[in-house]
Simulated scan of single mutants.
Amino acid sequence: MSTHAEGDVIAAESVEASCAAAQEASVPAAPDADRAIASRTRTFDTPRLRKDFAAQDAFLYLEDFLAPEVTAQLAHSARALLDEVNRNYLPGHKQGGSVSRHTIDRLAPFVAELYRSKELIGWLEQLSGDKLQVSPPDDPHAYALYYYTRPGDHIGWHYDTSYYDGRRYTLLLGVIDDSSCRLDYELHTRNPDVPDQPGSVQYPPGSLVFFDGDKLRHRVTPAGENEMRVSLTFEYVTDPNMRPWRRFISNMKDAIAYFGFRQVFRQLAARGKERA
């Protein structure tokens, strides 16, 4: 090989190495979830927030919750999972995309680490006054990413109904928001002694919404042209048991409205084989 040819090979290898290094540098290093959560929650007036949560009938919104490095990691994961999004459309109620915890477990393990953070769960327990548990491993909704990436993507008015024997709390985290979408909600709808109280937030990346799923009536307004919104939900329960008929209803809802039959029932079949 000539000296000129050898130089070309070395130059090409150098360019490839530089590109690889640049690509790696663009991927944020995953932070320690417990440490990152603790760094934020220790700055909050948690007793006051607990009073706010109770006064608003199990609802709290914080515009600035996550540490910046956590938000950056979640945004990177959300973009990396775009090819895994399952699109769905329910006329008059819902249009958008979802990625279930089963896919997240394979491709974005930091999300699962954050979900199980003892610091996060302990702080949420202080707010709610309940002992919280993670959802069972076959629940695709335990943690999931929700994508609003096409004009008209939205979800209509609903409750996050618990099919478990106990309560189910929802934690929403803002991940990406280049959109005009808003989270509209109504407080006290289950309390006949208190008038309904409407509200609306356009929660940005790093923000938090925490509520009892059976109490908060809420929706996400439609996305416009060239908009993108991604949110992350965590579900925690006070009792992880679920009666068989409720499990069937929950699985069918998840398969039709969110993650697809293959994602939901393939995982159930796999769990059955593991138990066998």
Results as ranks from 00 to 15, higher is better:
107 L>S: 12
48 R>N: 07
80 A>P: 03
33 A>V: 02
110 F>L: 06
68 P>W: 09
49 L>Q: 05
129 G>C: 11
112 A>D: 05
52 D>A: 14
236 Y>I: 02
41 T>C: 07
212 D>A: 12
135 S>M: 13
96 G>D: 00
17 A>E: 13
20 A>F: 10
217 R>S: 09
40 R>T: 02
132 L>A: 07
102 H>D: 08
112 A>G: 10
79 R>I: 02
176 I>Q: 01
116 R>P: 00
262 R>L: 12
62 L>W: 04
62 L>T: 03
32 D>L: 06
50 R>S: 08
30 A>K: 04
179 S>E: 02
172 L>E: 01
144 A>I: 04
174 G>P: 00
22 A>H: 08
219 R>F: 03
83 D>V: 08
160 D>H: 06
271 R>G: 13
155 I>H: 10
232 L>W: 03
230 V>N: 06
5 A>C: 11
31 P>K: 11
129 G>F: 05
262 R>K: 15
39 S>V: 06
142 A>D: 04
168 R>H: 08
123 W>S: 04
85 V>H: 02
85 V>F: 03
176 I>W: 02
161 T>W: 11
76 H>S: 12
18 S>D: 13
144 A>G: 13
6 E>V: 10
252 M>G: 08
25 A>W: 06
182 R>E: 12
121 I>K: 04
246 R>M: 09
204 P>N: 13
118 K>G: 09
241 N>W: 10
240 P>H: 10
245 W>S: 15
18 S>W: 12
194 V>Q: 14
275 R>P: 01
52 D>G: 09
155 I>Y: 06
171 L>E: 01
113 E>Y: 00
1 M>R: 15
270 A>K: 15
150 R>L: 12
158 H>G: 08
196 D>K: 15
178 D>E: 15
250 S>D: 15
257 A>Q: 13
188 H>D: 06
251 N>S: 15
132 L>E: 03
263 Q>S: 15
31 P>L: 11
45 D>I: 03
127 L>A: 04
197 Q>T: 14
33 A>S: 07
224 G>S: 11
78 A>Q: 01
97 G>Y: 00
197 Q>I: 11
47 P>Q: 14
255 A>C: 07
114 L>G: 00
194 V>D: 06
215 K>E: 01
167 R>I: 08
257 A>M: 12
244 P>S: 13
52 D>I: 06
202 Q>D: 13
16 E>Y: 12
260 G>Q: 05
62 L>N: 01
189 T>N: 10
